[in-house]
Design a binder for these strands. Structure first.
Length: 453
RNA sequence: GCCCCCAUCGUUCAGCGGCCUAGGACGCCUGCCUUUCACGCAGGUAACACGGGUUCAAAUCCCGUUGGGGGUACCA
């Protein structure tokens, strides 16, 4: 039997790292097992769903290199869910209820669920009327979860939940159960925040006549530093934002995979093909995992350095701009090897190349004092300025000049020169990029620095 | 409150009864390389939450405690 899995985002926001991770694990499993990966947009809640976000989800998935074999939209399939729900009513598996939420609260209190008040009241269709599923009073509903083992709920703790809103629109459980059955989904891989809805879906599915159910695998949640579920509100987690900041999709994908799972041989950073090969849902760690941006940065740096210089130039070019716009392609190409070794994210590139492509940056005050306060500095700068007009304009000659001055004076001359010319005490190599600057420009920078001492 | 889940270095993954004086990675610290930084290289730091069992033997199995999280909607 070919495996069929699905990723079912609700288009109520941008794709975030938690969703991306779910999509990724599903995709990996499908690709590994030669199965089918279905993208199913769960947009039954018209009030909250925004159609334009579907495109954003597509884009983020594509960016991550996650492709899908089939796509559905639940809003196109309403009639099936409606039919399923009304059949439940006809068969006595569900019933109409006209209790308001306040009515229910008044009867059962703050902390209890619905009390089954309308089970036998034969409520007729009308405004404010919902349909509730009649849950069993005893017995248990459970499943063998691939990552958690046996999970069971006493049916007595399951209230008669709403399956059709008073607007007539079925709830997601119904759509979910119907579609998983109709689409022949064999494995459901999703976040742990959905475990509690699983017994409902199982019950619904059974009522629809299914004799079996998909294999479930509930992924551990990704949490923030407070150990809380990543949320779109508090946490900066939209996949698109990571793309904008210059993370590589392959790094993000690889990193996401090490959250809750890891290759047995401890080699974390490796080609996606190998990862697909090694991956197994049953090996997923059930404990929540912290999204560690520092480690992601490390992965990203590794992936950046893995690129050929040509690829790096090509892919990072959109980030390689100064205030004056795009950087000269030839110049960027020449600077690229040094940039590539230093950037952990593409967004760091402008700061790295600023002194070469858009004039002298304002010196960092603290670094300036530390470097330029040394006794030999005025003399170092004077001697460099003295010879700058006659030196051959090559990196070798410039290096010889500056280091030579240092030797004459028995002092370190590279750092003061760097500070004068780049405004920073660290960054790209000094001499090669310096040779890219105009002689007049360099002279001016040196004199400005000298005057500033 | 009720239901469900989780528990190994600061973080993350490994460990599925003996190979563990617990391993890899990130971070952090040291040194080497280098007249910057980074890269690279060599070291170091640091954990089985607690208490009971079971067993010849437990990080690994069971129970409890504690701690954390998720759910508890006419959202998904």
């Amino acid at each position: 039997m070919t495996t069929r899995v699905r990723f079912s985002p609700a288009p109520t926001g941008y794709l975030h790292v938690g969703g991306a991770r779910s999509a990724l694990f599903n995709w990996l499993f499908a690709r590994k097992s030669g199965g089918v990966f279905v993208l199913r947009i769960e947009d039954t809640d018209a009030d909250r769903s925004r159609p334009e976000l579907v495109d954003a989800i597509h884009n983020s998935l594509e960016w991550l290199g996650i492709d899908w074999d089939e796509e559905y939209r639940q809003s196109d399939r309403f009639e099936h869910y409606v039919a399923a729900a009304s059949e439940f009513v006809d068969r006595g598996l569900a019933y109409r209820c006209d209790c308001s939420q306040d009515d229910v609260k008044a009867r059962v209190g703050e902390n209890a669920g619905y009390d089954g008040h309308c089970r036998a009241r034969d409520v007729q269709p009308g405004t404010g009327v919902v349909v509730r599923f009649r849950t069993p009073d005893d017995g248990v509903t459970g499943w063998d979860d691939l990552v958690r083992g046996r999970v069971e709920f006493d049916n007595a703790t399951l209230e008669d939940f709403v399956i059709v809103r008073s607007s007539g629109v079925p709830m997601f459980h119904v759509a979910n159960a119907y579609d998983d059955l109709d689409m022949g989904i064999t494995h459901v891989v999703r976040g742990e925040d959905l475990v509690n809805t699983t017994p409902r879906v199982l019950l619904l599915r059974e009522a629809m006549g299914a004799e079996d159910h998909p294999t479930y695998a509930h992924l551990p949640l990704i949490v923030n530093e407070q150990r809380k579920k990543l949320s779109k509100r508090r946490d900066d987690v939209a996949v698109g934002d990571y793309a904008d900041r210059g993370y590589l999709p392959e790094a993000m994908r690889n990193y996401l995979l090490t959250l809750g799972w890891g290759p047995k041989d401890d080699v974390e950073i490796r080609p996606i093909g190998e990862l697909i090969e090694l991956f197994d849902l049953a090996d997923i760690n059930p404990a929540p995992a912290f999204f560690d941006i520092k480690k992601l940065d490390h992965f990203n740096g590794e992936y950046i350095r893995m690129l050929s210089v040509e690829e790096f130039v090509e892919r990072s070019r959109p980030f390689a701009s100064g205030p004056d716009g795009a950087v000269d392609p030839g110049l960027y190409q020449r600077l690229a090897p040094w940039v590539q070794e230093r950037a952990r994210r593409y967004e760091e590139i402008p700061a790295l190349i600023e002194w070469v492509v858009s004039g002298p940056p304002e010196p960092v005050e603290k670094d300036w004092r530390k470097v330029m306060g040394k006794e030999a500095v005025p003399e170092i700068l004077d001697r460099i300025i003295e010879r700058i007009d006659t030196v051959e304009w090559t990196s070798d000659a410039l290096s010889e000049l500056i280091l030579g001055v240092g030797e004459e004076l028995g002092a370190k001359s590279q750092l003061p020169a760097r500070m004068a010319i780049t405004g920073r005490r660290s960054g790209l190599p000094l001499f090669e990029p310096m040779a890219e600057l105009e002689r007049d420009d360099v002279r001016t920078r040196l004199k400005t620095a000298r005057g500033r001492l």
